[in-house]
């Protein structure tokens, strides 16, 4: 690998298929084969080499454009919580096992602890703080409170992210099984799953009644 090497965690995690790995490791001067193997629209592949110190990145965070500096090894979770002091997203296991740090990246649910900060360059990140619309809680957030879908509240932001994503992608009426599937990766130690399911069904009902 040359000095211009760029290596992203996402590129590696995408799978061990040779082409994407080679492509993501390839420098600007490598051959056309690598360029063909990836989508030119992928902003990750267009990134320049970063590190070892802090490097800037642009992202949209909860609807606002932000330019921040992050170390190449910093996770999105560390960026949010330690650097930006946006602490609604919780750290519980720090290895993708519990869903407490779930955020939306371009609308998809992702563990912030398993995502490098630089992997969200050019992307839209939504945390629990971004679920409200100009200060007004979303119908899902309201249902969580009204139906008591939280006790200690430490899993709540991750649960809300998983269920919000389900609500925005689901077509037609929701089933319990769909919600159980959506939160299968969200652990709650107080035991609020039933109320989370009820709150999500209630928010979905409210939406379909509109």
């Amino acid at each position: 690998m040359t000095g211009a090497t760029k290596l992203t965690r996402r590129g590696l995690l995408r799978g061990f298929g040779a082409a994407p790995v080679i492509a993501s490791c390839a420098g600007p001067s490598s051959g056309e084969a690598a360029a063909e193997a990836v989508s030119p629209a992928d902003p990750l592949i267009d990134a320049v080499a970063i590190g070892p110190g802090l490097a800037p990145l642009d992202l949209r965070l909860n609807g606002a454009a932000r330019t921040v500096e992050a170390a190449p090894q910093a996770t999105l979770l560390a960026l949010l919580r330690d650097q930006l002091a946006i602490t609604g997203t919780k750290e519980v296991c720090d290895r993708g096992a519990c869903g407490a740090c779930n955020v939306l990246i371009d609308g998809e649910v992702r563990s912030a602890c398993m995502t490098l900060a630089h992997d969200v360059a050019g992307r839209e990140v939504t945390t629990v703080e971004g679920l409200a619309t100009s200060g007004a809680p979303s119908p899902l957030q309201r249902a969580f409170v009204e139906l008591d879908a939280l006790q200690c509240g430490y899993c709540t932001s991750g649960m809300l992210i998983s269920c919000s994503a389900l609500l925005s992608r689901a077509r037609g009426p929701l089933s319990r099984a769909q919600i159980q599937g959506a939160i299968a990766g969200n652990l709650c130690r107080c035991g609020c799953y039933e109320q989370v399911i009820a709150a999500t069904l209630s928010a979905a009902g409210e939406r379909s009644a509109l």
């Binding site: 602490t87 945390t127 703080e129 409200a132 409170v145 139906l147 008591d148 509240g153």
Partner: peptide
């Protein structure tokens, strides 16, 4: 409903 519910559901509750 618990009175601190909206703090917890908005991410504003400080732990």
């Amino acid at each position: 409903p618990r009175v601190e519910g909206s703090l917890k559901a908005s991410g504003a509750a400080v732990y």
